[in-house]
Write a protein that binds this DNA or RNA. Structure first.
Lengths: 133, 133
DNA sequence: AGTATTATTGCAAACAGATTGCAATAAGTC
DNA sequence: GACTTATTGCAATCTGTTTGCAATAATACT
C-alpha cells in the first residue's frame, strides 16, 4: 500500500480516500468496474461511478493495476504487484485463481515455429473449480 | 461455404446475400465488428450495422464463427472451421497469425498444480512480426 | 413461373457502458 | 490555518449494441 502511495505521489498526484478505498477492494480479487463500483458503495459512503473509472484509468497508466480480459466476458482489474501469472476461471461460480506456469515450455515452441518476436502473452484457463465439481 | 450453408438451412434459417457477404469478408482474417461493417459497405452495396450485429450473433450461436479477445482490445470474429489454435498478434501492424501448439505441455502442468477441471483455455501472444522488426 | 409463408432486413428509437466539461471540494504545501 | 491545484461529483454527451416494427426477400408449394 505504501509503495502504491509513493508511486502516486511521485507523479504529483494525490492519495485520496477514494483511491485508498478502491485499492482495498482490489486487494481481494480481480474485479469488473461494476463490481468495484458496487463494493465501494455498499456502505454509507458514496462514490460516483465516474470517479471509479477515472481512478482505474489512472492506476492503469501508473502500472498499479492490470486489465485482464477473460474471453468475451467484461474486463477485470487486478493489482499488478503479484508479478506475471495466469488465471483459472470457474465457469460455475466465477472464482478466479492465480497460477504460475513455467513459460519456457511453450515460448520455446513458439520460437521454433515462427519469426515473431514475442513481447508478452496471455494464457487463461476455463473450467470448474474444486468446490463446484 | 456449402457446409456453412447447410448448417444455416438445417436450422430453418435463410442463406441471404448479407450472410454470404459477411462470410466472404471473414475468409481473410479475424475482424472486429467495425471492420466487418466497413468491409461490407465499401462497395456500392449497403448493409445496415444492425444487420451485421444480428448475423454475427446468429453465426456465433450456430458455431460458424468464434469470438476472440486479445487483451484489452476489441473482440474479433473468426471463422471456426480451422479447429482450435492460438494467435500471434503483431503490436505494430496488427497482423494476426495462427499457430498450433502441443497443448499437453502446459495442460499437464496445470493438472499437477490444481484441482480445477479444465474445459478450455485461451493463449495469445503479442509481439512484433517478421516484417515489422 | 406465380403465389404464399415467414425469416430477415433496415430504420428509428432505446439502452448501456464509458467519457468529458465544469463548478465545488479537499489533499498537500507553506 | 490559509493557499494552491488535483480530484471529485454531477449533468450532459458519446459510442457501441440491442429492440420493435413495418417492408422486403428467401424458400416451399402449386
Amino acid at each position: 500500500m505504501d509503495k502504491v502511495k509513493q508511486i502516486i505521489k511521485d507523479k504529483g498526484q494525490r492519495f485520496t480516500s477514494q483511491k485508498k478505498e478502491i485499492l482495498n477492494v482490489l486487494q481481494q480479487k480481480p474485479q469488473t468496474v461494476f463490481e468495484i463500483y458496487t463494493a465501494v458503495n455498499s456502505k454509507k459512503n458514496h462514490m460516483n461511478k465516474v470517479t471509479v473509472y477515472r481512478i482505474l484509468t489512472s492506476f492503469l497508466e501508473l502500472g498499479i493495476v492490470n486489465k485482464v480480459q477473460f474471453n468475451d466476458k467484461e474486463a477485470r482489474f487486478e493489482l499488478s504487484n503479484s508479478g506475471h501469472h495466469h488465471h483459472l476461471v470457474c465457469e460455475v461460480c466465477g472464482l478466479i485463481e492465480d497460477i504460475q506456469l513455467p513459460e519456457n515450455i511453450f515460448l520455446k515452441e513458439v520460437k521454433n515455429k515462427t519469426d515473431f518476436k514475442i513481447k508478452s502473452h496471455s494464457l487463461e484457463f476455463f473450467g470448474i473449480c474444486d468446490r463446484c465439481q
